[in-house]
Structures are given as C-alpha cells and as structure tokens.
C-alpha cells in the first residue's frame, strides 16, 4: 500500500533523524517499529502521516495519490483528547472536521466506541476516565474514519502492565476485525513480539532500518505463555543488541 524509498530527514538543528530508510508496507500488515529512544521512529511515523516532509527519498502510495484526510488514523503516546469534550464528541471530531453532520456520524461513532469496549461511556469526559479508557477513546477516534492505515506512536507506553496487556490483546482483536494496516512504534520488545506480524528494528543516529523479523506467531489467549513467543522475544533481543553494537 505504501513504499518508503530511501527516505532521509535532517532537522534544521542539524540532527539527522533518518537516513536511507526503505520499507514496503503491504495492505493488512501489522508492523512494529522497534528501536531505542531517539532512533527516529516518531519522525518516520510523522513522515507517513504527512505531518512532516522528507529531505531525501520519497513515499509512494499504491494508488499514486496522497492519502485524503481520514485515510490515516494516528494514535499518540498520550491520548490527546479534548478535555472539555465527551468521549463521543472526541470520537466524532475527525468526522466533524470532514464536515459530516452528527446525525450521519452518530451510529459510526457509537460503533467505534463499542469496538474498543467503551459502550456506556459515551458521555464521559476524559477527566472521568482512566488512562487505559482514555487510550481506548483515542483508538476509537483513530478508527472512526475507517482509515486505510493506522499509525500508533508508543500508545501504551504510559499505561500500567495489566492495562497494557489488555489493550494489546484488544488492539489485536480490533485489527483482525477491521483489517486495516497498522504501523506501531514501540520500544518494548515484548510488545513488538506480541502484536506485530513484521518487526522492523531501527538503529540510532542517524536512524536506519537494521533488520526485519517476521513473526511466526498466531496470537491467541495463551500467546504470552507460548514457548514460541519466548523464542521470538529472544530472537528480537539478540538482533536488537547486534544492531546496536553495529551502530
């Protein structure tokens, strides 16, 4: 769906965040971008979202057109909700910005909230929700436009371990149901190994792609206890250490 070709990004401050990054993202992929802090993961995500432009290389979308608003969903590390708006109004926001009337959007908005397990919390304000629930609202907001690609930048990093495990499992279910493409930034090896079909390792300064590992797992309720999961974590850890040493 998207081909990233030899993309580079150097900021005005002189920091070279990305160099010669190439990656093919296929429809329906679940890609984890894994790497240490500062290796340019967020920068790459922002380039895909069109929030920033590369200095070198290019991004080629399969239909040749830049994605329209709503084709891309973005989930930030913090839920970044409007604090004065209810869960429902927050999820409605992308459709509202596209000019969809509430009467046409309501069913879609409620379905999105339902999908992330928040039925019944439509009129709760962010201040009344837990961190995990806020993140669920944020995911519902990203899904409500039925995006072709969902970009997630360390969405669960600030959550406690129990909440994180639940959300990871639920995200996986949603991905299977919705069938959209996901690019998921994380610096947790466990998270990458659990969620992703393809684990892309990045090395820092300048950020490049060091290696890619394809997951053999079929995620289910027992995955975290599965020896194959432990083996994958081990493979990824070794590969990441190798990549860091080489850098």
């Amino acid at each position: 769906m998207l081909r990233i070709e030899a993309v580079g990004r150097r900021f005005a401050s002189g920091v070279e965040a990305l160099r010669d990054v190439s990656l093919d993202i296929g429809a329906g992929d679940f890609i984890a971008l894994l790497g240490p802090s500062g290796c340019g993961k967020s920068t790459l995500l922002r380039l895909i979202a069109g929030l920033d432009a590369p200095d070198a290389g290019r991004l080629v979308w399969d239909d040749g057109k830049r994605p329209a608003p709503g084709d891309i969903g973005y989930v930030f590390q913090d839920a970044t909700l409007l604090p004065w708006a209810t869960a429902e109004e927050n999820v409605y926001l992308p459709l509202r910005l596209k000019g969809t009337a509430w009467s046409d959007a309501a069913a879609e908005v409620r379905a999105a909230l339902h999908r992330v397990g928040l039925a019944g919390f439509e009129s709760a304000r962010p201040g009344q929700l837990s961190g995990g629930m806020r993140m669920r609202v944020s995911i519902a907001r990203a899904l409500v436009t039925r995006p072709r690609i969902l970009l997630m930048d360390e969405p669960f990093a600030a959550l406690d371990e129990f909440t994180r495990h639940r959300l990871q499992a639920d995200l996986h279910t949603v991905w299977e149901q919705v069938g959209c493409t996901v690019v998921f930034v994380t610096h947790s090896i466990y998270e990458a190994a659990y969620l992703a079909r393809r684990i892309v390792l990045m090395s820092p300064r300048p950020g490049r792609i060091a290696r890619e590992i394809v997951s053999p797992l079929a995620v289910g309720p027992e995955t975290r206890l599965d020896p194959a999961y432990a083996a994958l974590v081990r493979t990824v850890t070794t590969a990441l250490e190798g990549a860091l040493e080489a850098a």
Binding site: R46, G50, I72
Partner: peptide
C-alpha cells in the same frame, strides 16, 4: 499541545475550525 494541533492538521482542519474547536476552548 502540539499533538492536538497535529491531529487537527491530519484531518485537514482549516484555521477557522482549529480556532473554534481547539484554540478558543483551550484558551477559555
């Protein structure tokens, strides 16, 4: 917050919408 401004940009919100739906409520 810059992320919220990015979000509005992502969904193609113009200046007016960004003002009325984001900046003014945030400034209240």
């Amino acid at each position: 917050p810059p992320e919220l401004a990015d979000l509005f940009r992502l969904y193609g919100a113009g200046r007016w919408r960004t003002l009325t739906l984001l900046r003014l409520p945030a400034a209240l």
